[in-house]
C-alpha cells in the first residue's frame, strides 16, 4: 500500500514541459529588480557598441586632421575633436571594444587560475590548502600599481601585459570566495549522499560543488569587471597600459587631461563611459547577489 496520493494530476512525460534555463528563479528574481534590469540594459548597449563600434563610428578613429584640432562638439564632430584632430565619438566607440575585451581578459584569466585552485584547496583541505593559501596570501601583498610597473618593465608596455598584472592582483579575491564556498558546500549532506551513490571526486567537484560556488563567484566576477575597467583607465592614464594611437578610455582621459584648460569638453565622454560601465557591472553584481540569495535549506522562499 504505497499508493500515497501525491499529486492530483499525474503528468504524462509527454505533457510535462521540461524547464528552460530562462524559467529559473534567479532570472525571475533578477527581472523584478529595477536596478538590475537597468544595469543589464546598459551593459547590453555597451556590449552592442563594443561589437559594432567600427561600423557605427562616423569616421576613422585614427584619422589625424591637424587643421581641425581641439574643435568643440559640432555637426561634423558630435563630440568634438582631440588635439590631433581625431573624431572623439569615433574613438570612444572603438575604445569600448578594447576596454571590454581587456576587462574580459583580466577577469577570465583570474577565474581560470583562481577557481580551480580555490575548489581544490577548499575540497582537499589539509596540506594542499595550507600551501596554496600561503601562495595566494603572498600574491595579496603585492601592491597593484607597483606590480603593473614591474610586469610592464619585464614584458614590455601594452594593454595585454597591463591586464596580466591586474589579473594577478584579482586572483586572490576569486580564490578566497571559491575556497570559502567550497568549504561550506563540502560538509553539506548532499555531498556525502553523492559519495554514497558512488560519484567520482571529479563529478562531485564539477556537478555538486561548482554550482554551489557559482552564485557568489558570478557576483564577484561582476564587481571585478568594474574594478578592471577602472584599472585599465588608471594604467593607460599613467602610460603603463594601452599606447597611442590605440583608442581606450584611459588613453582618451590622458589626452583630455593635457588639454583640460583649453578643451574641457574632452574629459566628459570617456568619463561617462567608464562611469556607466562601472555602474552597470556593480548594479548587476548587486542584483545577482540579491537574486541568488541562499535558496537551499530554508525551502527557497
Amino acid at each position: 500500500m504505497t499508493a500515497a496520493p501525491v499529486s492530483a494530476h499525474d503528468g504524462d512525460p509527454a505533457t510535462v514541459r521540461p524547464r528552460r534555463w530562462y524559467q529559473s528563479r534567479i532570472l525571475r528574481r533578477l527581472r523584478r529588480n529595477k536596478a538590475a534590469v537597468f544595469s543589464i540594459v546598459v551593459l547590453i548597449l555597451i556590449g552592442l557598441i563594443a561589437v559594432l563600434g567600427e561600423w557605427i563610428a562616423p569616421q576613422d578613429p585614427n584619422k589625424v586632421e591637424l587643421t581641425s584640432r581641439l574643435m568643440g562638439p559640432s555637426g561634423a564632430h558630435l563630440l568634438g575633436t582631440d588635439e590631433l584632430g581625431r573624431d572623439v565619438l569615433s574613438r570612444l566607440l572603438v575604445a569600448t571594444r578594447v576596454d571590454l575585451l581587456a576587462s574580459a581578459q583580466a577577469v577570465g584569466l583570474a577565474l581560470l587560475v583562481g577557481v580551480p585552485l580555490g575548489i581544490v584547496a577548499g575540497y582537499a583541505g589539509g596540506v594542499t590548502d595550507a600551501i596554496v593559501s600561503r601562495v595566494i596570501d603572498a600574491l595579496m601583498t603585492l601592491p597593484p600599481l607597483i606590480l603593473a610597473v614591474v610586469v610592464v618593465a619585464i614584458l614590455g608596455p601594452g594593454l595585454r601585459n597591463a591586464m596580466l598584472a591586474i589579473s594577478v592582483v584579482i586572483i586572490p579575491s576569486f580564490y578566497r570566495i571559491v575556497r570559502a564556498s567550497t568549504q561550506g558546500a563540502r560538509s553539506e549532506l548532499y555531498i556525502e549522499s553523492a559519495r554514497a551513490s558512488g560519484c567520482t571526486s571529479w563529478r562531485i567537484l564539477w556537478r555538486h560543488i561548482l554550482p554551489a560556488v557559482a552564485p557568489p563567484l558570478l557576483v564577484q566576477a561582476s564587481f571585478s569587471a568594474s574594478v578592471v575597467i577602472v584599472a585599465e583607465a588608471s594604467l593607460s592614464f599613467l602610460g603603463l597600459g594601452a599606447r597611442a594611437p590605440q583608442a581606450t578610455w584611459g588613453l582618451m582621459l590622458n589626452d583630455a587631461s593635457s588639454n583640460l584648460t583649453t578643451a574641457s569638453y574632452l574629459i566628459y565622454p570617456p568619463t561617462v563611459m567608464v562611469a556607466l560601465t562601472i555602474l552597470g557591472f556593480s548594479l548587476l553584481g548587486d542584483g545577482l547577489r540579491d537574486a541568488m540569495g541562499r535558496q537551499t535549506t530554508d525551502g527557497g522562499r
Binding site: T2, A3, A4, V6, S7, H9, D10, G11, D12, P13, V16, R17, P18, R19, Q295, T296, G299, G300
Partner: peptide, 12 residues
C-alpha cells in the same frame, strides 16, 4: 509513488 510531474521539480 510519485509522478512524472515531480521529475521536473526542484527539491524546494
Amino acid at each position: 509513488g510519485l509522478t512524472a510531474a515531480h521529475m521536473e521539480r526542484y527539491p524546494y
